[in-house]
């Protein structure tokens, strides 16, 4: 696999949200506005980059039996760093993301990439993989947040989208998140499977 493909795979072919169905909880919860969605995406990408690079650099040292505790310590360290930096430099974002920043620790995308990619590949490949997965995650969040903020508040980044548009509050509420992500997953599955012959068991 070429380096470019490693990066690209996380964007569409193996998009963590729409294809792998990972990390859905933060995606549903923080996609109520573009700003929060973007902040969550960048925070998770940073943690993913840090954990992938460190895990990959130490892949010859970590004993196999305690690999999961080791990964979790590395991931939790980067999450705490993000928390501190957000509180220091982006207090508004830190307040609106709230509990979902510490919860990045248990975001399965990050542990999944550490286990299935970073612990078997070189540092540079792992870096690209993290970047691709992180961007894929951020793109998914932005897409969801764009639809939900647009329909649910009638705004984009706090600016009115169409004057006089009456927003549907349900799109901001949890049901709106499930509706949107279900339809988007359906669309991506259709795109993936189109042209293939139907198989019946």
């Amino acid at each position: 696999m070429s380096k470019w493909q490693i990066f690209k795979s996380g964007l569409f072919k193996n998009n963590p949200v729409f294809i792998l169905y990972l990390g859905l909880c933060p995606v549903l919860a923080t996609s109520t506005s573009i700003r929060d969605g973007f902040g969550m995406g960048v925070a998770a990408t940073f943690v993913l980059l840090g954990s992938n690079v460190i895990v990959s650099a130490m892949r010859g040292v970590i004993p196999r039996k305690v690999r999961i505790p080791c990964f979790i310590v590395v991931i939790a360290t980067f999450v705490t760093l993000v928390e501190l930096f957000l509180a220091a430099y982006q207090p508004e974002l830190s307040k609106s993301l709230g509990l979902f920043v510490p919860l990045i620790v248990v975001n399965c995308i990050i542990l999944y990439r550490a286990e299935s990619f970073a612990s078997k590949n070189t540092v540079f490949s792992s870096f690209l993989d993290a970047l691709g997965m992180g961007c894929g995650f951020t793109l998914a969040l932005l897409l969801l947040a764009f639809i939900r903020e647009g329909l649910g508040k009638g705004t984009l980044l706090g600016y009115e989208l169409i004057p006089g548009f009456e927003p549907a509050v349900i799109m901001i509420l949890p049901p709106g998140a499930f509706l949107t992500i279900g339809l988007l997953m359906g669309f991506f599955n259709w795109r993936k499977n189109r042209g293939k012959a139907l198989k019946c068991d």
């Binding site: 009638g154 705004t155 984009l156 980044l157 706090g158 600016y159 009115e160 989208l161 169409i162 004057p163």
Partner: peptide
Amino acid sequence: AIEAEGTLWDA
């Protein structure tokens, strides 16, 4: 919530 200030296109 703050009232939207003008439309996106103005911004």
